[in-house]
Computed example of a mutant assay.
Amino acid sequence: MTTLRPFTAADLPACLEMFDSNCPAYFAPSERADYEAFLSDPADHGTYFVLEQGGEVVACGGVWQGGNLPEDIGGLSWGMVRGDLHGQGIGTALVTLRLAWIRERWPSVREVQIETSQRTEGYYARQGFRVLGRTPDGFAPGLDEIKMVLKLAPGTGQP
Rank of each mutant, 00 (worst) to 15 (best):
N68D: 15
G62W: 01
E36T: 10
F38I: 01
P29W: 00
E111R: 12
A59R: 02
E115M: 09
K151T: 08
I90A: 10
T47S: 09
H45W: 11
F139I: 04
G157K: 10
G62D: 03
F19P: 01
T120E: 09
P24L: 07
W101C: 02
V149Y: 00
D84F: 10
A140R: 10
C60P: 04
P24D: 07
N68V: 13
R126A: 15
G122S: 14
L76N: 08
W64T: 00
A140Q: 11
I146H: 03
A125T: 14
P42I: 07
E111D: 06
I90S: 07
T47G: 00
Y123Q: 12
P13C: 02
A93F: 10
D137L: 08
Q158A: 12
E104T: 15
M18P: 03
P141L: 09
P107E: 06
P24R: 04
G46H: 10
V50M: 08
C15I: 02
Q118E: 11
L150W: 03
V109W: 06
P141M: 09
R5T: 09
A25S: 09
Q53H: 13
W101I: 06
V58D: 05
L16A: 02
A140P: 11
E17D: 15
S117D: 08
R5F: 13
Q158T: 11
L150G: 03
E145C: 14
L12G: 00
T8Q: 07
L143V: 12
W106T: 07
M148F: 08
P24T: 03
G155R: 10
Q158V: 12
L39E: 05
G54N: 13
I73G: 00
W106R: 15
V131N: 02
L12S: 00
S21E: 05
